[in-house]
Write a protein that binds this DNA or RNA. Structure first.
Length: 574
DNA sequence: GCCGTTTTCGGCCCGACTGTTTTCAGTCG
């Protein structure tokens, strides 16, 4: 089951949304939002905390701690139930459409009885929104575009959500005695950025016992289809989970079959066919005499086809089979190669954890170095100042080196519409490392956007461009620029591009990262952590890099500190 | 509803952007 912190945070977050929609005190709404975020990111499991300890969670006071206990222990909250009775179930989903907030959601419900996204689409079709106060044809068009963007995710969930759930389900089945092997397969094992449903694969000589155990998994609300070796379940959160059981002797072939993309599998089967072989989920067999050549492990199956083992993240038919044939698959960057995180925040700006807490967490990750890169003053709501930055630098220097962790003082600058940055060049030169990112003015012409990025890339103090396309998966499309021109500028200037590991960013994505590496660009795989728990997001960034064929050599935070520092100096003295 | 080197009340992350207005409301980062 989900961690109690997540379940409770979801309850508080729903409370905040419903309060906002019904016109509740905005400061109360914000209090619940802040508490929800704080609980979700709190490093300690709230199951272990009593009322007094709950009260010590930042942004949680005596009233919310009582509500947390109710949500945690009983699962119900009177106030939440009352609000749910007032607000139609679908209305809250409107808040997930970019550009539509609580006020407008309330308005469309009160005046047009629109209570869901389908209702909203129908109202748009009949041009009924433009009749409302404050709306017009342009806002209708913007809303329509936003819904389309939102729906393009098409019911797919983010990698992080899918992986957490899949690991719970796999854990639940792994403890069953009849199960020899169990794992997740499909697009999730390939670590695609979004996943439609979860595919589980188990090896067992007693499939009935596995089916029985699957049906009893506490995460599943129902099991609408169940055969002898195959079943489909739907989780309490509405996610489809398919499970398939194969004999232990077919484990490798089944893994190959259920992991590769359609194109990858077709390519493999065609290769087999040409060699007089047949590849299925049961194994690779010779057609003329039916002799089984390989089936137990993936290595054997690929090997019998004359191929090197293809890592799951590459199985998209994007050249990996040809490379496996000629033995030129790259050595992919791995989690263990990463020596430090180069983009993190503290509670000096919008992070949840203090500098000391972030440093301690980085030590637990056994990092050799950590860059602290809080927001810069142009992001006005963060209230960063020169004085605060300098005070943080002094505090950071005092912690530097302890526990073998070296600290770099940085900042995440804002690339303005004209490509200029926070602070003056003299002050910028005092930082160890600077990330520069786009946080505003997302829509401009391709040429203007290209020039804007190149100007930041060429700034002598800028080391990394953060989340270069500024996309938010299922929420905001990537900005539009000339990728080749930008990448060539980055390679020339010695500015790295980030692979941001946040599950709703994964930016650069796999394909752009690959193009960047091909053009000689160095990359930084960073978490953009806003809490200690976010440091764990690195695996998603590393997976994205693997999907982009990225080698450790291309990733600056796999390098030893001395080499990293030379890169950060960009050929000048600091 | 939370919080406190403006401390038990009265603030609360600030400013840009957009489309609608004709001086502003809603949304976002």
């Amino acid at each position: 089951m989900p961690r109690s912190n997540d379940r409770v945070a979801e309850g508080l977050s729903e409370l905040a949304d419903l309060l906002a929609i019904t016109g509740g005190d905005p400061y109360r709404v914000r209090a619940y939002e802040k508490a929800a975020r704080s609980v979700a990111l709190y490093p300690i499991d709230i199951d272990e905390l009593d009322a007094k300890a709950l009260d010590a969670i930042p942004a949680v006071g005596p009233r919310i701690s009582k509500k947390i206990i109710q949500l945690r222990d009983g699962g119900h909250l009177e106030e939440l139930d009352e609000l749910r009775a007032q607000v139609p179930a679908g209305l809250r989903s409107l808040l997930s459409v970019p550009g539509l907030g609580p006020k407008r959601a309330h308005q469309v419900y009160e005046e047009l009885r629109v209570a869901s996204i389908p209702d909203l689409l129908e109202a748009l079709e009949h041009q009924r929104l433009r009749e409302l106060h404050g709306w017009g044809p342009t806002s209708e068009a913007r809303l329509a575009a936003a819904i389309e963007q939102y729906q393009q995710a098409g019911g797919r969930m983010q990698l992080g959500v899918a992986l957490a759930l899949a690991e719970e389900l796999v854990g639940g089945l792994a403890s069953v005695p009849a199960v020899n092997e169990v794992t997740y397969a499909g697009s999730l094992r390939r670590m695609r950025e979004t996943v439609g449903d979860i595919d589980l694969l188990a090896a067992s000589s007693n499939p009935a016992a596995v089916m029985e155990a699957f049906s009893r998994l506490p995460q599943l609300a129902e099991v609408p289809a169940r055969g002898p070796t195959k079943a489909t379940g739907i989780t309490v959160t509405g996610i489809h989970v398919d499970v398939r059981v194969v004999p232990p002797s077919s484990w490798g072939a089944a893994l190959v079959y259920f992991t590769g993309s359609k194109a990858h599998n077709i390519h493999l089967r065609r290769m087999a066919q040409r060699a007089g072989l047949k590849l299925s989920e049961y194994g690779l067999e010779r057609i003329d005499d039916g002799k089984m050549l390989a089936s137990a492990t993936e290595e054997q199956v690929y090997g019998a086809l004359g191929l090197a083992f293809v890592p799951p993240t590459l199985r998209e038919d994007r050249g990996e089979i040809e490379a496996a044939l000629e033995g030129s698959l790259p050595r992919l960057v791995d989690l263990g190669d990463i020596r430090g995180d180069l983009h993190t925040h503290t509670n000096l700006t919008d992070g949840m954890a203090s500098l000391e807490e972030m440093v301690a967490a980085a030590r637990r990750h056994r990092y050799r170095y950590l860059a602290v890169t809080d927001h810069a003053p142009l992001m006005a709501m963060q209230r960063m100042t020169t004085e605060k930055a300098l005070a943080q630098r002094a505090a950071l220097r005092a912690l530097d080196g302890a526990g073998g962790l070296r600290l770099l003082h940085g900042s995440e600058l804002n690339i303005q519409a004209d490509g200029s940055l926070d602070w003056d060049d003299d002050f910028l030169a005092g930082f160890d490392l600077l990330v520069a990112s786009i946080h505003s003015a997302f829509s401009m012409s391709r040429d203007e956007m290209t020039a804007r990025l190149i100007k930041a890339i060429e700034h002598p103090a800028v080391n990394i461009i953060g989340h270069p396309t500024a996309r938010s998966i299922g929420h905001r499309p990537p900005i539009v620029f000339d990728a080749k021109a930008v990448f060539d500028a980055a390679a020339r200037a010695g500015t790295a591009l980030e692979i941001n590991s946040f599950p709703d960013r994964l930016d650069l994505d796999d394909e752009l990262a690959r193009l960047a590496q091909d053009r000689g660009v160095k990359l930084a795989i960073s978490t953009d952590a806003h809490a200690t728990r976010h440091l764990d997001h690195l695996r998603y960034g590393v997976a994205t890099a693997q999907r982009g064929w990225i080698r450790p050599e291309s990733v600056i935070n796999t390098w030893p500190l001395a080499r990293l520092r030379r890169f950060l100096a960009k050929g000048r003295h600091r």
